[in-house]
């Protein structure tokens, strides 16, 4: 995972839950087929319009509900660069860090508009809006997770811990 992410914004509201991101009825399909249905309940054109590196910006409680990592899998399949939200549900936040999907909390995401170009520094918790020429403060990565993120997620971190190359 890179510590600097730059991409174009798609905005969403509050409570984007895991049934919206990864509907249960498609979870047994291969990830590329699941990914077609990502977010379709609220944004049917999602899978066609998003481009690699795009950033999702949302309100409260992003990723609430299930522990399904298929939510991260479909977003990673679309090569979403990062998610910025006012707050995240606990398991979603943890899973995202474990699989190397950058997530940043920020006090008021409503100041960011669809189409804005953002640059996020995960270590400093700094978010630059190049379109608006402004800068916001986001949360920094928790101290104890920096090494895991530097290595690229939980699996490489475990490999190092277990002495497996």
């Amino acid at each position: 995972m890179s510590f600097i992410i730059r991409g174009r914004v798609w905005t969403y509201g509050d409570n984007i839950n895991t049934d919206i991101i990864s509907p249960g009825q498609y979870m047994s399909l291969p990830v590329e087929k699941q990914a077609v249905h990502a977010m379709e309940a609220i944004d049917p054109s999602f899978s066609e319009k998003v481009q690699p590196g795009d950033i999702l910006v949302a309100g409260h409680n992003f990723g609430s509900g299930s522990s399904r990592e298929t939510a991260q899998m479909v977003l990673k399949h679309h090569r979403i660069g990062a998610i910025v939200a006012y707050s995240f549900a606990r398991i979603f936040y943890r899973n995202s860090i474990n699989v190397g999907l950058p997530v940043v909390e920020m006090a008021d995401t409503s100041v960011i508009s669809e189409g804005d170009e953002l640059e996020i520094n995960l270590l400093e918790g700094k978010i630059i809006n190049h379109t608006k020429g402004t800068e916001y403060k986001g949360t920094k990565l928790p101290e104890h997770l920096i090494e895991m993120v530097k290595l690229g997620g939980l699996e490489p971190y475990l490999a190092k811990k277990l002495g497996i190359s």
Partner: peptide
């Protein structure tokens, strides 16, 4: 008792531990 993701479970299965 709490829910975790599948990747985190890999670590639990191998080491019996997590943070």
């Amino acid at each position: 008792a709490t829910g975790i993701g599948s990747t985190e479970m890999i670590g639990v299965l191998l080491t019996g531990e997590t943070w």
